[in-house]
Amino acid sequence: MNPVQIVEAARPEVGTMPPIDRRHLRERIFDAAMRAQSELSPVDLASPNTRASNAARLAALALLGLAAVGGLAYSASRETPGSRATAPSATDVAPSPTLEPTVNTVAQAPLLTTATTTTTPPIPGSGDTPLLLPPERNRLDELAVVRAPLGGSALLLRAPDLSTISLIEVDGLAPAEEPEPDPSASSTTTTVPPRQYAAVSVIPPDEDTPGQYSVEVACGSVSVLDTAGRPAFRPEIDALFNSMRITDGVINIDLPDGWAAISGGRSTDEFVFGLPVEIGNQQVTIMVAQYPDGSLAVAGNDQRQYEPATFNGQQAWVNRDPEDPAAFTLLATVGTTAIRVSARDISLAETEEVINGLTPGDVDEWINRFGSLPVDLDPDIRSCTDQPEFNIV
């Protein structure tokens, strides 16, 4: 073997240089050659075979040789001994590194919070707001305030035949002494004597006030109201009068079997307004009478007949006129306030919506909107000690 073959046999096998590496190597060789040429003195074209020009060409060739040897060494360093730069198999392909997804963090707005408040909405029918006021700037069909009678109270009872009977008492003056009758005077007036019961005397109804009885008391007055048109002193009325006892002005009533007391209490001021509302494209007026801290008996001290009903989820009483079925009168309570509602061409459910839409208020707000209350024209001149008062035994 000649020396060249010996060198070739000792040289390790080197695979083909990748294209990108070959490109980089060419660029380096070109840069090295250009730098070497720029550092030499300009070539004299008139004498190309001078010693200086030959030396320059030899130096350039030496640099090219060094660059080639360096490229071979770089190629050998890229592979392990005994391996060739063959195309890798499909199983040898390294998986691409998995990149973590970039999360764009967006600043979130803070959650809405409800600030605590110490403001308490007014409660209708309470001690602070006993009245229901109509909406402001509403036209009213009626507006009135009736002051409570002195020492008055009422009682509403239900008889075994399911009829309702009202009792009203009002304090007053001691009765004036009756003058001595004049025997010489003649009179054609016939006075119906009172009817006597176990412990009370009752003046029967007259033609002008059918169904209204008066119980004789030492001071003041007591009225018993039955429905007009019913027979006077019917059995239920007789049973009621027989259950009464008057002791020191107190009318004690020992209710017979089958009777029930619906409500009772002292009289209070009456606040009334008529509110026009639109129901089903029809104008309807609702009359609302209110009795702060009052009772249903005070609201319904009349001769109407009331039947049980439900209003705003509570026990109420309603009267419907047989001659006008579209009209009704309702007795109900809102908190501690008794109300009487009268209307026609409107249902109880629609009436509830109207009542619930009113604004709770007090007497001062009523005065600010509608003016001062009427002056009590009746001074307290009660002179007797035994004033009538109801008591259910």
Rank of each mutant, 00 (worst) to 15 (best):
Ser126Cys: 01
Pro360Leu: 04
Asn301Glu: 05
Leu155Cys: 03
Val277Ala: 02
Gln37Lys: 12
Glu79Tyr: 08
Glu278Ile: 15
Thr91Asp: 14
Ala46Asp: 13
Ile381His: 08
Ala33Cys: 07
Gly274Asn: 01
Val341Phe: 05
Arg11Leu: 14
Arg22Tyr: 05
Ala67Tyr: 05
Leu64Trp: 03
Arg78Ser: 15
Asp226Cys: 12
Leu45Tyr: 06
Arg304Gly: 01
Asn301Trp: 05
Ala326Tyr: 05
Gly211Asn: 05
Pro181Asn: 02
Glu323Asn: 14
Gly274Trp: 01
Trp317Asn: 08
Gly274Asp: 06
Tyr291Gln: 02
Asp302Asn: 15
Leu155Tyr: 01
Asp226Ile: 07
Pro135Ala: 07
Pro81Trp: 12
Leu156Glu: 06
Thr188Cys: 00
Asn104Val: 15
Gly371Thr: 04
Asp378Thr: 14
Thr191Ile: 14
Gly125Lys: 07
Thr91Phe: 11
Thr105Val: 15
Ala73Ile: 15
Leu225Phe: 10
Pro122Asn: 10
Trp259Asp: 08
Gly65Asp: 14
Ile381Val: 14
Thr191Ser: 11
Asn242Val: 09
Gln282Glu: 13
Thr188Lys: 07
Ser347Gln: 01
Asn54Trp: 14
Asn242Phe: 00
Val7Met: 12
Val93Glu: 11
Pro292Leu: 04
Thr188Gln: 08
Ala239Ile: 02
Ser77Lys: 12
Thr385Ala: 14
Gly65His: 13
Leu40Tyr: 04
Tyr306Ser: 08
Asp238Arg: 12
Thr310Val: 15
Ala73Met: 11
Pro97Phe: 10
Val363Cys: 03
Val103Ala: 06
Leu112Tyr: 11
Asn54Lys: 10
Glu350Ser: 12
Thr190Lys: 14
Ala176Asn: 04
Gln212Pro: 00
Gly82Trp: 10
Leu140Ala: 09
Glu307Pro: 06
Ala174Lys: 11
Val4Pro: 00
Glu100Gly: 07
Val375His: 08
Gly280Trp: 02
Ser267Lys: 04
Ala198Cys: 05
Gly82Leu: 11
Ile392Lys: 05
Ala176Arg: 03
Thr310Gly: 09
Leu64Asp: 03
Pro325Phe: 09
Ala232Lys: 10
Leu157Arg: 07
Arg147Cys: 00
Val145Ile: 11
Val224Thr: 09
Gly361Arg: 06
Pro276Gln: 03
Ile381Asp: 13
Ala56Thr: 03
Asn252Met: 10
Asp257His: 10
Ser126Phe: 02
Ala59Ile: 13
Asp376Thr: 12
Leu377Ile: 11
Pro360Gln: 08
Leu61Glu: 14
Thr351Val: 02
Glu350Asp: 15
His24Cys: 06
Ala87Lys: 13
Gly274Lys: 07
Asp293Phe: 12
Pro121Cys: 00
Pro48Ala: 04
Ala297Leu: 01
Phe390Met: 00
Cys384Val: 01
Gly335Val: 08
Arg22Trp: 09
Thr285Phe: 08
Leu275His: 02
Gly65Met: 13
Glu178Phe: 06
Val217Cys: 08
Asp257Asn: 12
Ser221Cys: 01
Ala198Tyr: 10
Thr337Leu: 06
Ile367Trp: 00
Thr227Gln: 14
Ser342Ile: 11
Ala154Tyr: 03
Glu353Asn: 08
Ser77Trp: 12
Pro235Ile: 06
Ile355Glu: 04
Ser187Gly: 07
Val170Gly: 04
Ile168Met: 10
Arg344Trp: 07
Arg340Thr: 04
Ala239Phe: 00
